[in-house]
Write a protein that binds this DNA or RNA. Structure first.
Lengths: 232, 232
DNA sequence: TCTTAATGTGTCGTTTGGACACAATATTAC
DNA sequence: GTAATATTGTGTCCAAACGACACATTAAGA
């Protein structure tokens, strides 16, 4: 038995949602297509799955191709497979979403791919069902950031609490009390005072923190079960 | 442009995790395969995606084929696509998970497919990566049930608080204080007293409740954001 | 030196949650 | 028919968490 008979093979694509944070709002990295179909229009960065390539590997390949980055936060989101989602030919798209530090990518590579950071608030029209994908990814981001210490993936190695605060306000599109937020974040024990201060500030300089990597690994999953750890 | 050139088409399958609750523990509906490959072994119910069929429709078709049920709770879980996950031929599997009332399915159909309910605690070996899928689905169930009123999908139309309590203990594999649980559930306002009592009970008969459908629809998403509703 | 803007820390009252007690109901044993 | 038993419904208490808000500290620029 070397093949399954009587079954249709389909084109399988990977599309990547790439979020960044510019200090003020959440941004999305999209490309202006200089290839068919839909040349000249905006879309997510994507590609096809290679015959001998795992899905996650494919996603990392595509992300690396655009940003030059490795070892970034990537998570499979959902698979979009409506029959007519791609007018050229039926294509199943496995969507991944990635969080990166907006200042860490390879500018050259991004320029070469004709990619741009766009604001979520006045996002250009995207091709196919890509806008649905983005909407879905945003919901996932909100969901996860509320339960897991995932926001740090969007910030530099060291960061201040006011930065983190602005990030969360941007994610949820709402104001959060600065003082209560600070208390809550510090109570997690995930932040380590680096002893340095943010020199960019115009007024009082904020303390620069870094993540406690070990506690981060530990807490990442224990956040999941805000019900105490299940046994099975 | 009628096709994308130079790209490999892959077989796309759908596999379904089907959970039920027998009043004591969470059960999984699996089939004993009487077809190749892996004839005689246990696996999830699945099938291939048809050329002209949306993924969700395919999942519903497969679920209906096995259980005779329509309009059940189905949610896309993840897509499994490791190169060698299926030894016959590379196959991408889009996994869905469904919650059903364990007493509502078509017994005939289940027998005809050689399907059985198995306990999660002594689950038989499953083929390919199906055990990973189940593990993943269980985590999703725990995740969602903690935030959304999703457990009801596993119970009959009317149910008692002690039933619900046992269900949650089964989901999380831990004991939950009966009284605190009751208080918490009632405080959601989702339960409506039907005025009837559970006649099956050996001792004091428990109140039968039903879901407040409207509040259920409302709350289903508002549970998401335990941070107040975001604006964007 | 004063003003201003941003940052760090603290207080207070309410709400929520976990631990636990007790009363009510229905079946079974005697 | 009554007592014992198991199960269910409701309540109390205390500690922890949370939201709303005040005040002190720091640094740049007028």
């Amino acid at each position: 038995m070397n093949q399954y008979p009587h079954s249709t093979r389909l084109l399988v694509a990977i599309d990547c949602i790439i979020f960044g944070f510019d200090g003020d709002e959440i941004k999305l990295l999209v490309i202006k297509r200089n290839f068919e179909p839909e040349r000249g229009k905006w879309s997510l960065m994507g590609g096809f799955v290679n015959q001998e390539e795992d899905l996650e590997v494919g996603a990392e390949r595509i992300l690396h191709e655009l940003t030059g980055l490795n070892n970034i936060y990537v998570e499979q989101l959902l698979t979009f497979g409506k029959v007519n989602r791609d007018p050229v030919e039926r294509t199943i798209s496995v969507v991944f979403f990635a969080l990166i530090n907006i200042h860490s990518h390879d500018e050259e590579s991004v320029r070469a791919h004709n990619a741009h950071w766009v604001s979520l608030k006045n996002m250009p029209q995207l091709i196919f069902d890509h806008e649905k994908m983005v909407q879905n990814a945003l919901e996932r981001l909100r969901y996860k950031a509320a339960l897991h210490p995932i926001g740090f993936e969007l910030l530099p190695e060291t960061f201040t609490i006011p930065q983190l605060h602005k990030l969360y306000e941007a994610i949820y599109g709402m104001q959060l009390d600065r003082r209560n937020f600070s208390r809550k974040i510090l109570s997690t024990g995930l932040l380590v005072d680096t002893g340095e201060k943010n020199e960019n500030s115009a007024t009082k300089k904020a303390i620069l923190y870094r993540l406690d990597k070990e506690k981060y690994e530990d807490k990442f999953h224990s956040f999941w079960y805000f019900m105490p750890e299940p046994s099975a």
